[in-house]
Each structure stands twice: as structure tokens, then as C-alpha cells.
């Protein structure tokens, strides 16, 4: 898939995944790369950026096997940002679809 397409929406996808519940990096990467063709590594810089912007927070949680894992949690600010971006995305994709369908006629 075109990289330019992906760049803008991956933040939105990661925020959405975290809205369903707290998760750790590997899991987020797995979920995302299972649906969109991106490398697993892609989510880490995004998570880091979201954390530094205060949209997600992190905490360590013990795991059954191995060392404690770093979990990511959607903050209130992150939830607000997600709502706003999602609406914007819906309007945008709707408009794009209309243009593309108009072309097909």
C-alpha cells in the first residue's frame, strides 16, 4: 500500500486499538500488521510520539512469562483527539469516495 496513504492514518488506527483496552507494543503491532500491510516496527515510533504528546500513558505490568511489559493506555486527551480525528477522517473519506465514484460514472 502507498506509504503516503498510511502515514496519516496510522495514528488514528493505533488510538482506536487502544480505545478498546490497554495493550502492549507487541500486541498493538500484531493487531495492526494483521490488518494493514505495515512492518511490526512501525507502531513503536507512533506509540512513542503519542506518549510524548500526552495522548497515551504508559505503565509496567507483570506478565506470566518473562519480564514486565510496558502497557499503553489511552488518556482523556487521547480519546478526545481520537473522536475529532475520526470525524475528520469520515468526512474526508466520504468526500474522496464521492469523487472516485463520480469518476466511474
Amino acid at each position: 500500500m502507498n506509504n503516503q496513504f498510511k502515514k496519516g492514518v496510522l495514528d488514528l488506527c493505533v488510538l482506536t486499538i487502544l480505545k478498546k483496552g490497554d495493550s502492549y507494543g507487541y500486541d498493538v503491532a500484531d493487531t495492526l500488521s494483521g490488518k494493514i500491510q505495515v512492518s511490526d516496527g512501525t507502531v513503536y515510533p507512533i506509540l512513542r510520539k503519542l506518549a510524548s504528546d500526552g495522548l497515551v500513558s504508559t505503565y509496567l505490568k507483570e506478565s506470566q512469562n518473562g519480564p514486565p511489559r510496558k502497557y499503553y493506555h489511552l488518556t482523556d486527551e487521547g480519546a478526545k483527539k481520537l473522536e475529532a480525528d475520526k470525524q475528520e477522517w469520515d468526512v474526508f473519506t466520504k468526500a474522496v469516495r464521492e469523487i472516485l465514484e463520480d469518476e466511474d460514472k
Binding site: 502492549y24 507487541y26 512492518s39 511490526d40 512501525t42 513503536y44
Partner: peptide
């Protein structure tokens, strides 16, 4: 973070080689 990713991947049964591959070009 990336080291943890390897740790989880290995405990999920993947090889280091596979994990590195899936992570993408460093």
C-alpha cells in the same frame, strides 16, 4: 522497547530472524 518486542515474540514461538524480519528495516 524493541528488545521487549523480541522477548515477547520469542515467547510466542517466533525465531529472532522472523521477528527482525517482521519489524522491518532498522
Amino acid at each position: 522497547d524493541i528488545e521487549d518486542h523480541f522477548t515477547v515474540g520469542i515467547s510466542a514461538g517466533k525465531t529472532e530472524e522472523d521477528i527482525a524480519n517482521d519489524l522491518g528495516d532498522p
